[in-house]
Nucleic acid binder design. Structure first.
Length: 122
RNA sequence: GGAGUUGGCCAGACAAUCGCCGUUUGAAUUGCACUUGUGUAAUUCAAAGGGAGGAAAGUCCGGGCUCCAUAGGGCAGGGUGCCAGAUAACGUCUGGGCGGCGUAAGCCGACGACAAGUGCAGCAGAGAGUAGACCGCCUAAGCGCUGAUGUUUCGACAUUAACGCCGGUAAGGCUGAAAGGGUGCGGUAAGAGCGCACCGCGUUGCUGGUAACAGUAUACGGCGAGGUAAACUCCACCCGGAGCAAGACCAAAUAGGGUUCCUGACGGCGCGGCCCGCGUUGGAACCGGGUAGGUUGCUUGAGCCAGUGAGCGAUUGCUGGCCUAGAGGAAUGAUUGUCCACGACAGAACCCGGCUUAUCGGCCAACUCCAAUA
């Protein structure tokens, strides 16, 4: 397996996983996206994405956003903590261009990993 | 060449790097089966090849498929609505008819019946549905009154003119979206299908057409029957319900059901130092249901392409070739570079046939109108 792959093991697969994260999460917030993270027992981070129909109307746009988020996660997964991460899309997300989204996400990954380290040590 | 109509097609291209999901082939590991070196399943690696649309959308119709219900028929309810055909079927398509628009190619049309019944219609207007007298027109008949003339038995009577009453009248005006066929002549007091001619309408017959419908008449009807059925209704035809979260299979942990067997209440566990006592109830095998989860349904199909036969056409017969996404918190992508016409609307979720809506631009064919040239 390559270093930047993105297999099913790196995703959150069931509603139970999502519920687990929502319960006691470490947040990282921006106007368009909220990241929620929780330590897991795996040796790698796991990703889940939720973008509701209410926030982004067109299925075509939702697909695009998910792909971008996944791609950013895939390229940055080595710096991320071993946690389950849920990306929650908010309204206004659909207006971002792809480069804008990439820079926004890389900022948020850094923020999140810093906070996770703090919570672990403190 | 310009303007336009109809039908069909395409949906940025190429390269590099990094990813995702099926398929095929090869290899390795593990499990299972036995016919002991093969088969099969899972995982990993490598290679090859494939990976959204014309609307994938809205979910507005129709069908397949699945489960449930169902003898047959009727009622209710819903749908469709010129005719014929195509089709698995349709509210779709094709051809035709009728009406409307356009110089034309063409386009548009819920287009059965109000002459079965019931209902509805603001304002204006005299009158709005077995019509109506406001203005206007008329005063022939009937009545009243006045004048004139004539006759006279001086009571009146007759004629005539004006006026009034009782009326007549649907030609004209006014109102309105709409005023109960039109034009002309006759007719009349004035008028009126009151009569006639022609036109229109309807009925009937005949002719052509499968039919819708069209044409026609030494025929019949003076016209009675205005509009509205996306008003009830009538007529003809069609329709069982729910949907892939359908349905089928496997089935953990935990809880729990049934049967049989074992143990046997003198047993085990808890209270207890022990007894009595009190409370509580075991093990195994098999069977059936079934949650989480998994597998399947899941892509070979009313399929696509080419040729050819039938048909005006929708469509269809035959022959040959092709396999062209199959995910599942949901793949089909990202970044960079180059080029150009600078890229719209937009993402499959069981599958098809349509309709509707969104949409940057480009290409092809046929046809129409205008202009010019030879």
């Amino acid at each position: 397996m390559g270093e930047n792959s993105f297999s099913r093991e790196l995703r959150l697969l069931t509603p139970a996983h999502f519920e687990n994260v929502f319960n006691k999460a470490i947040p990282a917030v921006s106007p368009q996206i909220t990241l929620l993270a929780k330590q897991n027992n795996c040796s790698h981070p796991r990703l889940g994405i939720t973008i509701s129909k209410k926030r982004v109307k067109k299925a075509h746009d939702r697909n695009r956003l998910k792909r971008i988020i996944r791609e950013s996660y895939r390229l940055n997964q080595n710096m991320l903590p071993k946690a389950d991460i849920v990306v929650v899309g908010k309204s206004g997300l659909g207006d971002l261009t792809n480069p804008e989204l990439f820079t926004l996400l890389s900022k948020l990954w850094k923020k999140l990993s810093r906070r996770c380290e703090q919570s672990q040590s403190g």
